[in-house]
């Protein structure tokens, strides 16, 4: 076999010190991006917890649920104009989603560049199993879900009852057994959310440097419990509508 002449791999340049600093340096560093992801993720989780609790009010009856939705819009009145809190929440949420997606995308691109060649042998996860590898496409599914979800229950665009109905009616109509495929989509999406949080919940602590030794073990267990509770809590509503417990 002939060995052609090989050239030595090029050495990377060592940067001039002191290093990149300030916010832009932070946001460009992989660690900074991760911190953004963790903080935005945490905001989204808090929202989800609140959202789930709110959703469960549906079991307290139509009135409670609708007035809760109303309250969301009027809280702070008259000191604050209508919808202030809700709009604020929406802005924070939107920012969190943008920040979260931005860091997810830029980290994914960085990762793709760092690992251009795949292994020929099928990689077996040696660690936390498959869950952690669903984060990226799982996130995409969640986004698609949220878009649908907003069109469905917030704007009513794809809801049989439309925008003018009460929230309660939209929910009941949306999950009508005849629209089983909607419910199925919700279930799939919720499972993805569950998986995302199964990893994301403790991962955020790790990213912020708050997971250590035994704490990591507890966080891991906590993440499993909380993500399961969230999924079950969310699922309760569409399933209840499906079987006719809420109508």
């Amino acid at each position: 076999m002939v060995t052609p002449r090989t050239t030595p791999p090029k050495a990377q340049k060592t940067p001039k010190r002191p290093g990149r600093q300030g916010l832009s340096g932070f946001l460009r560093s992989s660690n900074g991006k991760k911190a953004v992801m963790a903080v935005s993720g945490a905001v989204l989780v808090l929202f989800l917890i609140g959202h789930m609790v709110g959703n469960l009010k549906i079991f307290l009856g139509e009135g409670t649920f609708n007035s809760y939705a109303e309250w969301l819009r009027t809280v702070g009145e008259p000191a604050l104009p209508a919808r202030t809190m809700l709009t604020l929440t929406e802005i924070v949420l939107a920012l969190a989603v943008i920040a979260h997606m931005w860091s997810a995308v830029s980290l994914a691109r960085r990762a793709a560049k760092a690992r251009p060649v795949k292994y020929a042998a099928r990689r077996k996860s040696q660690a936390n199993g498959y869950v952690v590898h669903t984060m990226r496409y799982g996130g995409v599914i969640i986004v698609l879900f949220v878009v649908w979800h907003l069109l469905d229950l917030t704007f009513g665009a794809v809801n049989p009852k439309g925008y003018d109905a009460t929230p309660y009616d939209r929910v009941v109509a949306g999950f009508d057994p005849s629209r089983w495929w909607v419910t199925a989509f919700y279930v799939v999406a919720l499972v993805m959310v569950g998986l995302h949080l199964r990893h994301g919940l403790w991962s955020a602590f790790q990213t912020l440097g708050l997971a250590n030794g035994r704490a990591r073990h507890l966080l891991n267990v906590g993440a499993a419990v909380l993500s399961t509770l969230l999924v079950l809590g969310f699922l309760a509503v569409p399933l209840a509508v499906m079987i006719g417990a809420v109508k």
């Binding site: 076999m1 060995t3 002449r5």
Partner: peptide, 9 residues
Amino acid sequence: VPGEEEGLN
């Protein structure tokens, strides 16, 4: 000794 002078051998 296989190979050549050039390259990793």
